[in-house]
Design a protein around this nucleic acid. Structure first.
Lengths: 149, 149
DNA sequence: TATTGTTATACTCTATAACTATA
DNA sequence: TATAGTTATAGAGTATAACAATA
């Protein structure tokens, strides 16, 4: 029973939004985790990379620059990040997590991962490997083109 | 190289939002396809099931009832669906596609699938099968719980 | 002149709380 | 009293267009 590209595309189109819904619901449900998915992703970026620029944020989260500005504004207002001047290029901004931001992202991740882990507990070894492999394949296939755009 | 549940959860948490972004971008890019993902999913539901209620829409798209109301309001304003009275239970609504709605959903799907198909063209048979299998596994794992909630 | 970022503006998404109408 | 749906209200996500500051 061979699966055509069209069938595969169809599955992707119908399933990914559902999965996204589920993840969003998880995150919203966490009592203390008052972060939306894009906010969370921005904090994760700032946690890993040192002082990302606004452009970097926009690219990472998949937004336009103005959208990233609005997103970061919200995080700044809530005291989770600060905008720091870039030392050598004064047009650029370097985003930095505050202590509160560091705590928030840690808690949100812990919480969300715990919930996800619970739901994925039923998967066997082969299924887990399959999931990781398939998602990696999809990421490469769908993101490659974005760079081209 | 065995993959733990935590690693699997981690991959899901970081990858699914990216994939969703990519799909959203695809749909937005379509010249004539001016539908958002939730709007599209609502039209697809109405296309398949006959006269879904508002509750059915909310459940399918993963929204609260008020959110579904707002979503459908937009579609009604644009002439893509109509709210019809349920014959026996006057509290209920039955959603029906208009001709324009039927055309719109057809075009949007065609367009989006074409783009996705293009991007997935590089996958071999085993990868396609793996993707479908993995997404199905994830859907079952993540959605089961939603019903419980 | 090109690049980085922000402001202005306008939709849509999404939720909670309060309400109406029907069962 | 319980259920289906809407209205009211509010905040976040998201885009395009126009602008400011710096390189």
């Amino acid at each position: 029973m061979s699966i055509t590209i069209e069938e595969c595309a169809q599955t992707v189109l119908t399933t990914i939004p559902s999965l996204m819904q589920a993840i969003r619901a998880e995150m919203r449900q966490g009592r203390m985790a008052s972060l939306t998915v894009p906010q969370f992703r921005t904090l994760v970026l700032a946690e890993g990379a040192p002082g990302p620029s606004m452009s970097r944020v926009a690219e990472h989260v998949g937004l336009t620059l103005p959208s990233a500005t609005a997103l970061v504004d919200g995080l700044v207002e809530r005291g989770l990040v600060v905008r720091q001047p870039h030392p050598s290029d004064r047009r650029c901004v370097q985003l930095a997590l505050t202590e509160a931001g560091r705590r928030e992202v840690r808690e949100a991740r812990q919480h969300t991962l715990a919930m996800l882990t619970e739901r994925l507990a039923g998967l066997d070894e082969a299924e887990r490997a399959g999931v990781v492999r398939a998602l990696t394949v999809l990421r490469l296939a769908l993101q490659t083109q974005e760079a081209v755009r």
